[in-house]
Design a protein around this nucleic acid. Structure first.
Lengths: 346, 346
DNA sequence: GTGAAAGCGCTAACAC
DNA sequence: GTGTTAGCGCTTTCAC
């Protein structure tokens, strides 16, 4: 009974306990635990042994508060409900798994605009670095950093100021390639389902679509570019709008794969075949893209790699203060599968 | 310049600052910030205004250390690389998003066996509660808890001791239903691709497969139950093994959808058609399952719901200490799509 | 090399 | 109702 009480309720072991057992002062224990160099080897061994024996585990809050390293990095993102984000997280996690940093995950949910509050909470002695996947208004988050020097990386964002490390993909080139591919196939009326236009990649992709049209001497028809939201639902609605057009398009370029998947559903619900009646192309190449039927042709964005690079860069900033911000832009790649064909073939 | 310095480098604002500005002691500030009742309304207003004006943000480590609420809950899981896990996380996140708890995500990666260390680190004043998605050796993690009373929930795990809150699905019933369905279709030689047998659900599913066979007077053929790993790779290998059999099965029941997807690839690579030549059924109903071609028939496990229930239960334990552990088992459901058919039809 | 002591920002008795 | 005070467990000068 009393034994039970001891085991379950006894306060956790602190450096004081380790100090007592190993017969040194607790500041020496702290030194050993932090890998401080100037400690006699025999003392070090003794302390380590005592810590091991006692099952010592550092109290992170105490360490953080005292100005030590928390070994926590924060990841701020809007939500978790799509695999575009999951893929990026995986990349981050892979890198963190090899280092010994832990991940604090913050999702802002619908609390849009709350980013600044989160940023301040995370950076307030909690995390040593921050990964920002804030598609909407990155500058708001940036301004909330305690200083421009606070280690941070913006993911899927390009930077106009060169003040922050960023990881981005060639959204413009990718969207240009996709449009060009469709045009090359023989399409002249290409619908475009937009992403959320508050997001930079959505803007870039739409602009590139227009540019490709123009470069090929094709007119930009306002009615062919419809609203979307980067989700299947918006893709469905957008495609439905497009299909209702008197002179409907022979191909649809959805701003991302999720929209494309929604669009495919809408097309099927209208009794049309893909790609025979209408071609569909997406963007991102999320894992689902290769499983759809027909398999979705899309523009691959190296999501895992983006997460990995962002994390690697962040750790570098943390380990080597003063490392200048780095802007990385990764290449996208057109992945041709089965959802597009020559419109004249039908 | 000096202004810049001020904004970016100045120490973060603490309750001391708020106290000074609002002209009260800092313990009063603490009271107001913690929603303590016995504070004069006018003081409360003054403090709140000062906090707002100064842009005060709580220092979490300090609060935790002082014994206050960290409002962090930990989620310990093996890895992030499949949507089974992503779905559960989404459920957790949904609930947390409505409360004001934040999520600390720990992935043990390959560091198998390290769970205990993580558990102790997380529970050591850092998090107020812990969600455990530790398929392998749950008891190891459980033993590392500071006490049995520490708020925690085991996800996708059933509990023999009734000491912990758990959320599980009816794996046995689900696997039984799947096997029965195949038998009802007319299959007599049904291959089974196992999951990792250190995991309880893998064991449950295999046992139920055997039970269904027996209940239908069908023999259990050892060579028909092959190794798998709950991933596409293992599913591919398992199916390949099955297809090489002299008297190969007419249907394959894969222990989860990822394995089933791998199996489908193997089947196609062997030049066979699904479901005409061979039927395939999975387990989980991850988002990809409805996108495969043909669409995968599977046993649906309510993953998001499991995450949601686990989080809800955890918060309840935190808010109302003394709440007894709760064992929740959710129903699985056979989702019939297009990957299975009558073997005599071919 | 190692110990002593201050303090990180906050909560929670305890006074008044 | 509100102020005073003692820690929470740790890092980090500063002595010796």
């Amino acid at each position: 009974m009393s034994d039970d009480f001891e085991t379950s309720r006894s306060k956790s072991v602190t450096i004081m306990d380790v100090a007592r057992v190993s017969g040194v002062s607790y500041s020496t224990v702290s030194r050993v635990l932090n890998g401080f160099e100037f400690v006699k080897d025999s003392t070090r061994q003794r302390v380590l042994a005592a810590a091991e024996q006692l099952g010592y585990v550092a109290n992170l809050p105490a360490r953080s508060l005292a100005g030590g390293r928390s070994r926590i990095i924060g990841l701020l993102l809007p939500r978790l409900d799509n695999s575009y984000i999951s893929e990026i997280i995986r990349g981050v996690d892979e890198v963190l798994g090899e280092s010994d940093y832990d991940l604090m995950l913050y999702t802002t949910h619908r609390q849009q605009g709350k980013e600044a509050v989160y940023v301040r909470a995370i950076t307030n002695r909690l995390a040593e670095g921050l990964l920002l996947l804030v598609p909407m208004f990155p500058s708001l988050s940036l301004k909330a950093l305690p200083s421009q020097d606070f280690p941070h990386v913006l993911i899927d964002q390009s930077d106009k100021t060169n003040q922050s490390s960023v990881v981005y993909a060639t959204n413009s080139q990718g969207a240009y390639d996709a449009t060009n591919y469709l045009i090359g196939l023989g399409h002249e009326r290409i619908g475009f389902i937009r992403g959320q236009m508050e997001i930079q990649s959505a803007v870039d992709r739409l602009a590139a679509y227009k540019a490709a049209l123009a470069d090929n001497g094709l007119p930009f028809d306002e009615t062919l570019a419809v609203d979307g939201d980067f989700y299947a639902k918006g893709g469905y609605a957008g495609a439905t709008e497009l299909l209702a057009l008197a002179n409907r398009p022979t191909a649809i370029f959805a701003a991302n794969d999720l929209s494309a998947i929604g669009a495919m559903d809408a097309i099927r619900d209208h009794g049309l075949r893909i790609p025979d009646d209408i071609s569909v192309i997406g963007f991102d190449d999320i894992p689902q893209a290769s499983l759809t039927y027909p398999k979705l042709t899309t523009v691959r964005q190296p999501l895992i790699e983006m997460g990995r690079i962002a994390a690697t860069n962040l750790l570098e900033q943390i380990e080597k203060p003063g490392t200048p911000p780095k802007q990385v832009t990764l290449a996208t790649e057109l992945v041709i599968r089965d959802s597009c064909t020559d419109p004249r073939r039908r």
